[in-house]
Design a protein around this nucleic acid. Structure first.
Length: 177
DNA sequence: AATCGTCGTTCTT
DNA sequence: AAGAACGACGATT
Protein backbone atom coordinates (compact mmCIF):
# COMPACT_ATOMS: atom_id res chain seq x y z
CA UNK A 1 0.00 0.00 0.00
CA UNK A 2 1.09 3.52 -0.64
CA UNK A 3 2.43 5.55 2.24
CA UNK A 4 1.21 9.02 2.90
CA UNK A 5 4.73 10.42 2.77
CA UNK A 6 6.37 8.45 0.00
CA UNK A 7 10.10 8.55 -0.63
CA UNK A 8 12.08 7.33 -3.60
CA UNK A 9 15.58 6.06 -3.97
CA UNK A 10 17.72 6.63 -7.03
CA UNK A 11 21.34 6.05 -7.80
CA UNK A 12 23.52 8.65 -9.45
CA UNK A 13 26.68 7.57 -11.21
CA UNK A 14 29.61 9.95 -11.31
CA UNK A 15 33.31 9.78 -11.99
CA UNK A 16 33.77 9.26 -8.27
CA UNK A 17 31.40 6.33 -8.13
CA UNK A 18 27.74 5.63 -7.68
CA UNK A 19 26.00 7.81 -5.13
CA UNK A 20 22.57 7.02 -3.76
CA UNK A 21 19.91 9.66 -3.26
CA UNK A 22 16.68 9.60 -1.32
CA UNK A 23 13.92 11.99 -2.36
CA UNK A 24 10.62 13.04 -0.90
CA UNK A 25 8.07 15.04 -2.79
CA UNK A 26 9.52 18.13 -1.14
CA UNK A 27 13.07 17.51 -2.28
CA UNK A 28 16.33 15.68 -1.73
CA UNK A 29 16.36 14.06 1.69
CA UNK A 30 19.66 12.18 1.75
CA UNK A 31 22.77 11.68 -0.33
CA UNK A 32 24.97 8.67 0.33
CA UNK A 33 28.53 8.08 -0.78
CA UNK A 34 29.36 5.15 -3.05
CA UNK A 35 29.47 1.92 -1.11
CA UNK A 36 27.75 3.40 1.89
CA UNK A 37 25.22 1.18 3.54
CA UNK A 38 21.67 2.39 3.25
CA UNK A 39 19.23 1.41 5.91
CA UNK A 40 15.60 2.27 6.21
CA UNK A 41 15.06 3.41 2.66
CA UNK A 42 12.81 1.90 0.03
CA UNK A 43 14.08 -0.41 -2.67
CA UNK A 44 15.24 1.29 -5.84
CA UNK A 45 12.09 2.52 -7.45
CA UNK A 46 11.71 2.94 -11.18
CA UNK A 47 8.54 5.01 -11.40
CA UNK A 48 9.11 8.42 -9.86
CA UNK A 49 6.86 11.46 -10.25
CA UNK A 50 8.02 13.94 -12.86
CA UNK A 51 8.90 16.53 -10.24
CA UNK A 52 11.19 14.06 -8.51
CA UNK A 53 12.77 13.04 -11.77
CA UNK A 54 13.51 16.66 -12.54
CA UNK A 55 14.97 17.18 -9.11
CA UNK A 56 17.10 14.11 -9.55
CA UNK A 57 18.44 15.49 -12.79
CA UNK A 58 19.38 18.68 -11.01
CA UNK A 59 21.13 16.62 -8.41
CA UNK A 60 23.11 14.75 -11.02
CA UNK A 61 24.36 17.87 -12.77
CA UNK A 62 25.09 19.67 -9.52
CA UNK A 63 26.95 16.73 -8.10
CA UNK A 64 29.05 16.31 -11.20
CA UNK A 65 29.83 20.02 -11.20
CA UNK A 66 31.10 20.01 -7.65
CA UNK A 67 33.05 16.84 -8.21
CA UNK A 68 34.86 18.59 -11.05
CA UNK A 69 35.60 21.59 -8.92
CA UNK A 70 32.94 23.85 -10.41
CA UNK A 71 30.10 25.72 -8.78
CA UNK A 72 26.73 24.11 -9.56
CA UNK A 73 24.26 26.25 -11.50
CA UNK A 74 21.00 25.16 -9.96
CA UNK A 75 20.85 22.83 -7.02
CA UNK A 76 18.05 20.38 -6.41
CA UNK A 77 15.43 21.32 -3.88
CA UNK A 78 16.34 20.07 -0.44
CA UNK A 79 13.93 18.58 2.03
CA UNK A 80 14.93 19.87 5.46
CA UNK A 81 11.55 19.31 7.02
CA UNK A 82 12.96 16.86 9.52
CA UNK A 83 15.75 19.15 10.70
CA UNK A 84 15.84 21.41 13.72
CA UNK A 85 15.94 25.20 13.24
CA UNK A 86 19.54 25.32 14.39
CA UNK A 87 20.58 22.64 11.92
CA UNK A 88 18.82 24.49 9.15
CA UNK A 89 20.61 27.70 10.02
CA UNK A 90 23.96 25.95 10.00
CA UNK A 91 23.35 24.17 6.71
CA UNK A 92 22.12 27.40 5.16
CA UNK A 93 25.39 28.96 6.20
CA UNK A 94 27.31 26.11 4.61
CA UNK A 95 25.59 26.73 1.30
CA UNK A 96 27.07 30.23 1.33
CA UNK A 97 30.65 28.93 1.30
CA UNK A 98 31.96 29.22 -2.25
CA UNK A 99 33.61 26.29 -3.93
CA UNK A 100 37.28 26.25 -3.06
CA UNK A 101 37.12 28.23 0.16
CA UNK A 102 36.77 27.09 3.71
CA UNK A 103 35.54 28.19 7.12
CA UNK A 104 36.19 27.06 10.65
CA UNK A 105 33.51 25.71 12.93
CA UNK A 106 33.92 28.82 15.01
CA UNK A 107 33.41 31.10 12.03
CA UNK A 108 30.13 29.42 11.22
CA UNK A 109 29.09 29.81 14.83
CA UNK A 110 29.97 33.50 14.79
CA UNK A 111 28.12 34.00 11.53
CA UNK A 112 25.04 32.74 13.36
CA UNK A 113 25.67 35.24 16.15
CA UNK A 114 26.48 32.38 18.51
CA UNK A 115 30.25 32.60 18.78
CA UNK A 116 30.46 30.07 21.56
CA UNK A 117 28.58 27.36 19.72
CA UNK A 118 31.42 25.97 17.62
CA UNK A 119 30.99 22.54 19.05
CA UNK A 120 27.28 22.55 18.39
CA UNK A 121 28.04 23.58 14.83
CA UNK A 122 30.21 20.52 14.49
CA UNK A 123 27.35 18.36 15.68
CA UNK A 124 25.04 19.98 13.15
CA UNK A 125 27.55 19.41 10.37
CA UNK A 126 27.69 15.78 11.35
CA UNK A 127 23.93 15.61 11.00
CA UNK A 128 23.99 16.98 7.45
CA UNK A 129 22.13 14.38 5.37
CA UNK A 130 23.30 15.82 2.05
CA UNK A 131 27.11 15.92 2.00
CA UNK A 132 29.02 17.36 -0.97
CA UNK A 133 26.02 19.39 -2.11
CA UNK A 134 25.69 21.00 1.28
CA UNK A 135 29.42 21.46 1.63
CA UNK A 136 30.15 20.45 5.17
CA UNK A 137 33.56 19.31 3.90
CA UNK A 138 34.52 23.00 3.69
CA UNK A 139 34.44 23.40 7.45
CA UNK A 140 37.74 22.78 9.19
CA UNK A 141 39.03 23.06 12.70
CA UNK A 142 40.92 26.13 13.71
CA UNK A 143 44.68 25.80 13.69
CA UNK A 144 44.91 23.55 10.68
CA UNK A 145 43.01 20.49 11.85
CA UNK A 146 40.75 18.70 9.43
CA UNK A 147 37.96 18.17 11.91
CA UNK A 148 35.73 15.20 11.30
CA UNK A 149 33.55 13.92 8.52
CA UNK A 150 30.61 11.60 8.83
CA UNK A 151 31.32 10.09 5.43
CA UNK A 152 34.90 9.27 6.43
CA UNK A 153 37.90 11.57 6.43
CA UNK A 154 39.14 10.11 3.16
CA UNK A 155 36.20 11.68 1.41
CA UNK A 156 36.77 15.01 3.12
CA UNK A 157 40.38 15.02 1.97
CA UNK A 158 39.37 14.02 -1.52
CA UNK A 159 36.75 16.75 -1.83
CA UNK A 160 39.06 19.42 -0.49
CA UNK A 161 41.85 18.31 -2.77
CA UNK A 162 39.74 18.54 -5.89
CA UNK A 163 38.75 22.04 -4.83
CA UNK A 164 42.43 22.92 -4.55
CA UNK A 165 42.16 23.61 -0.85
CA UNK A 166 45.25 23.15 1.24
CA UNK A 167 45.05 22.74 4.95
CA UNK A 168 47.26 21.94 7.87
CA UNK A 169 48.69 25.43 7.82
CA UNK A 170 47.35 28.95 7.69
CA UNK A 171 43.69 28.22 7.18
CA UNK A 172 42.68 31.59 8.49
CA UNK A 173 44.46 33.30 5.64
CA UNK A 174 42.36 31.39 3.14
CA UNK A 175 39.11 31.53 4.97
CA UNK A 176 37.80 34.88 3.82
CA UNK A 177 37.67 33.78 0.21
C1' DA B 1 48.29 15.75 26.89
C1' DA B 2 44.73 16.75 29.97
C1' DT B 3 40.91 19.67 31.33
C1' DC B 4 37.21 22.89 30.99
C1' DG B 5 33.57 25.96 29.02
C1' DT B 6 29.99 25.97 25.86
C1' DC B 7 25.58 24.52 23.58
C1' DG B 8 22.34 21.76 20.60
C1' DT B 9 20.78 16.96 20.44
C1' DT B 10 19.74 12.52 22.18
C1' DC B 11 19.15 9.39 25.83
C1' DT B 12 17.42 8.40 30.44
C1' DT B 13 14.77 8.80 34.14
C1' DA C 1 9.31 17.23 31.94
C1' DA C 2 13.80 17.51 33.51
C1' DG C 3 18.43 16.16 33.71
C1' DA C 4 22.51 13.61 32.30
C1' DA C 5 25.45 12.29 28.68
C1' DC C 6 27.65 13.07 24.46
C1' DG C 7 30.12 15.26 20.47
C1' DA C 8 33.03 16.72 13.20
C1' DC C 9 35.16 22.71 18.88
C1' DG C 10 38.29 25.93 20.95
C1' DA C 11 40.88 27.90 24.63
C1' DT C 12 43.69 27.22 28.71
C1' DT C 13 47.00 25.09 31.62
Amino acid sequence: MRSKNPIWRRSVSTAAGEFTAVFSAAGLRELHFPGEKILRSPPDSQPVPPAVAKNCLRLETSLKAILSGREPKQRPHLDWSRATPFQQSVWRELLAIPCGSVRTYGQIASALAKPLAARAVGTACGANPVPVLVPCHRVLAIGGGLGGFSGGLDWKRKLLTLERVTWGGAILANSRD
